[in-house]
Amino acid sequence: MGSEPVFIAMLLGGVGVPWLLVVVASLGNILGAVLNWWLGMELERFSGRRWFPVPPAALERAKRWYHRWGRWTLLLSWMPIIGDPLTIMAGVMRERLWIFLLLVSLAKTCRFATLAYITLCWA
């Protein structure tokens, strides 16, 4: 289960101060993204193994895609399904950590702030 349903339930249940919930949820998601980035950094050294889950052609396609669209795709890291692969690919592409943190933090914090605003205004 994603963090969004828990976040919304806590907001609606009045558990905690909304701005603090935004901060904690954002930090948790950012830390998860940093773990993905680190895994991506370590991933390529296993690419020649039989058990490696990504075929070499798919890895090359992903690299070309990242080279084309670049680090700005990390602003989509908040999105379900595609967010995690984007953060892993940033690690594979050796994106600098400070740039990664800046873009991912912006994306994930804006997501939770927007979600809190919508939830509290429409509840």
Rank of each mutant, 00 (worst) to 15 (best):
S3M: 14
S3R: 08
P5H: 08
P5T: 06
F7I: 01
F7P: 00
A9E: 11
A9H: 07
L12I: 07
V15Y: 09
V17E: 15
W19R: 06
L20T: 11
A25Y: 08
A25V: 05
S26A: 14
N29D: 12
N29Y: 01
I30T: 06
N36Y: 12
N36H: 14
W37Q: 04
W37N: 05
W38D: 04
L39A: 13
L43S: 15
F46T: 08
R49M: 13
R50K: 14
R50C: 04
W51Q: 13
F52V: 04
V54A: 10
P55V: 11
P55Q: 10
L59R: 10
R61G: 02
R61Y: 03
A62W: 07
A62V: 07
A62S: 13
W65M: 12
W65C: 06
Y66N: 03
Y66H: 12
W72F: 11
L74S: 03
P80D: 10
I81M: 12
D84C: 02
V92E: 02
V92T: 09
W98E: 10
I99Q: 11
L101E: 05
A107S: 13
A107D: 01
R111I: 05
F112N: 00
A116N: 08
Y117A: 14
I118G: 01
I118D: 00
T119Q: 08
T119P: 05
L120I: 08
A123E: 00
